[in-house]
């Protein structure tokens, strides 16, 4: 019994020194939002930051929402003054780093909305990862400001 207590006590400092092992050693999604679009527009874009605090690369493979027919990953890019948008199969979030979906760059392309979304609405998205549990995220619809591009 005494031995067990000592063993447990000796573990305490180790646990205190590595709190992230207990709490945050998983994918974290921050700043998820959807750009409000004019009413007739059928496709919307969602943006967010995905943090990977783990020691392994994490691969985002798919996303879905009951509010949209399907979701894809897209990248907007500029080439010689021409704006292009391309479908991207996977998003790799390297170990101990983060990945940002942002205007003019990578975005989640939300296609086939069920009804008009307005600033303030919240949309549940589910993200699927390779070798990781799916993550639910609540994205807020908001208007983009000119400074945000």
């Amino acid at each position: 019994m005494k031995k067990l207590v000592i063993l447990l006590l000796s573990l305490v400092p180790a646990l205190l020194l590595t709190p992230h092992l207990l709490a945050e050693e998983t994918v974290v999604i921050e700043k998820a939002w959807i750009r409000e679009a004019p009413p007739p527009v059928e496709v919307l874009a969602a943006y967010m930051v995905i943090k990977n605090p783990t020691d392994k690369d994490i691969i985002l493979t798919d996303a879905e929402s009951s509010r949209f027919k399907h979701i894809m990953f897209h990248q907007s890019m500029l080439e010689n003054g021409i704006v292009k948008m391309r479908h991207v199969e996977n998003i790799v979030i390297p170990a101990h780093s983060s990945f940002e979906f942002k205007p003019g760059s990578f975005h989640l392309m939300l296609m086939g909305k069920d009804k008009i979304l307005q600033a303030g609405d919240k949309v549940q998205l589910r993200l699927f990862f390779e070798n990781n549990e799916p993550v639910e995220v609540l994205a807020v619809v908001k208007k983009i400001e000119a400074e945000e591009e």
Binding site: R35, A37, P38, P40, V41, E42, V43, L44, A45, H74, S76, V83, M85, P103, G104, H107, M109, L110, K143, I144, E145, A146, E149
Partner: peptide, 18 residues
């Protein structure tokens, strides 16, 4: 084009603010 969800609305918003 209006089915462009990213760059076009950004530019339109920018022109409005200009």
């Amino acid at each position: 084009y209006t089915h462009c969800p990213d760059v076009c609305p950004t530019t339109m918003t920018l022109l409005d603010s200009v």
